[in-house]
Nucleic acid binder design. Structure first.
Lengths: 111, 111
DNA sequence: GAAATACTGAAGTAACTACTTAACTATTTT
DNA sequence: AAAATAGTTAAGTAGTTACTTCAGTATTTC
């Protein structure tokens, strides 16, 4: 799993945009062409291609061109890296609270 | 868990910045004052306060002012919401691949 | 081979972001 | 009460982002 901060930056930045999240959501249900990705979005095809480039640069999506159709798919490894970063921080916090809880319980015992 | 897309937007946008992620990382090890958060960052205190406001607006961090010190802490619920969004998409994709694998295996059995 | 399809790239623009400095307020400490 | 501390707020600015339109290039289809 890539913890390169620059890569994390690109991933979270990619996920920050609602249109791009919608694209990821669509792709989570299966591969799609650029036009299929564009269809539910209220913007030009050109704009969608630009969003797609952001997603691809972030590593969250990979694409392959066959003939005139570019097929896009999710990269679950990259998604997992973002997920992992958040999870680690949340767990660190929760472990801390647990230790604090134990400490308080122990202190109470000693009275 | 809040799935409000506007809230997700704010959260991912908040996490997109490396300085803000560093602040979250620091807070995952325990509460901190604004100056403590600022200390490792190469920017003015003012800039840190602005980042902090973004984090607070996103719901990822909450703060409480006592006297002249503002103490900041992580909101694990919000972190979990972001985590959950990513996880759902990745699982949707992986379930899809599993079904596809089963289908291919079944098809092979039928020869 | 002409027309339709599926994208791609460049240029322009309006809005937003991440800062800065400087002036300020509120709270402690001495 | 003066000085130091901790944070806040406003205004300005350079750089970035999310689009747009328009003109292009391959690839199919008819």
């Amino acid at each position: 799993m890539l913890h390169d901060p620059a890569q994390l930056d690109l991933m979270f930045q990619a996920l920050a945009d609602p249109a791009r999240r919608q694209m990821v959501e669509r792709l989570s249900r299966g591969p799609a062409s650029v036009s299929q990705l564009a269809e539910p979005l209220a913007m030009s095809l050109s704009a969608v291609v630009q969003h797609l480039n952001v997603l691809e640069a972030s590593g969250l999506v990979s694409t392959e061109k066959l003939g005139r159709v570019r097929t896009c798919r999710i990269e679950p490894h990259a998604l997992k890296a973002a997920e992992h970063w958040i999870n680690e921080r949340r767990l660190a916090w929760e472990r801390r609270l647990d230790r604090l809880g134990d400490f308080l319980a122990d202190t109470k015992d000693e009275t």
